[in-house]
Every structure is written in C-alpha cells, then in structure tokens.
C-alpha cells in the first residue's frame, strides 16, 4: 500500500515538491472510508463523503486513487454533462464525479453503499417514462404500421 505513495509518477507536482502520505490527508480519509464500510456491513448505514470538503494536498489524490483502485463497474450518466460512477477495487466503495456540459468538474463524492442512488431510476422519471411509452404505443396502435 505504501509502494505507490513513494512513486513520483502519481504526484501532480514536480518530484521536489512531492508530498508524503505521512503528512497528507489521504490516510485519514481512507480510514474514514474503512469505518464507513464497516458500518455498511454491520448496520447497513450508507455514507457519502464530499471530496470538495477535504483539504487535499498535492499527491493526496494520487494516494487515494491508487489505494482504492479500479473495480468492476463504470457507469456514465448523461445528465446535463457527464457523471462518472465507478465502483472501486474495494466493492462497496464508489467514486462519483459530476461534470458539467463543458466537461468541468462540479463535485466529487465517495459513496459507501451497495448501490449509489443516482444510478437508480427516479420515481418521477419513471412516471414520465410510463406516459411517454403509453403515448408511443397509442401512436403505434392508431397510426399506420411501418
């Protein structure tokens, strides 16, 4: 786990400015994620962590990225800009990045959950979907066959 930390490739800063994990904020955050995952498994408590509220130093993000790794799921939402929902190599820990239509990052979260809510269909959308389908069927029934 310490190996990637020492690797300057993962630092966005020049090698001289590399920031060691011992003073950064990645480690406390990873411990918080570990506690949250324990809580998910024992009591079913879901946790959302706003990465925008974490005082990251240079290199901290690389430590987080490397330690969590890449998992099996990578979903892309197209909802006024792309949102990337990725399960990490630690199942139950998800990374969610919301981007706007220009591709700029808007907010980033770590969710500790079995299934991020944003992936589920919202009830209001399903209601609208039912109506759209009914309209389309009506058009098919009443219209001329293609």
């Amino acid at each position: 786990m310490m190996a990637p930390i020492a690797d300057p490739r993962f630092s966005p800063m020049p090698a001289g400015m590399f920031f060691s994990a011992s003073v950064g904020n990645a480690l406390p955050l990873l411990h918080q994620i570990r506690h949250a995952l324990t809580a998910l498994l024992t009591g079913g408590t879901e946790t959302i962590i706003d990465l925008g509220a974490i005082p990251f130093g240079p290199g901290d993000e690389a430590v987080l990225e490397e330690t969590l790794g890449t998992g099996e799921v990578h979903a892309v939402l197209t909802a006024m800009g792309e949102s990337h929902v990725r399960e990490t190599a630690i199942p139950g820990v998800w990374r969610i990045d919301h981007r706007d239509m220009a591709g700029a990052l808007q907010s980033r979260f770590v969710e500790i959950t079995m299934m991020p809510d944003i992936l589920k269909t919202q009830r209001e959308d399903a209601v609208r979907g039912l109506k759209v389908l009914e309209d389309r069927l009506a058009a098919l029934d009443g219209g001329t066959p293609v």
Partner: peptide
C-alpha cells in the same frame, strides 16, 4: 430529468 435535478442538488 429528476436524476439530473438530483445531480444538480448533490
């Protein structure tokens, strides 16, 4: 969509 709205709220 509601999902977009929820993304916006997040």
């Amino acid at each position: 969509s509601r999902r977009t709205f929820m993304k916006y709220c997040a």
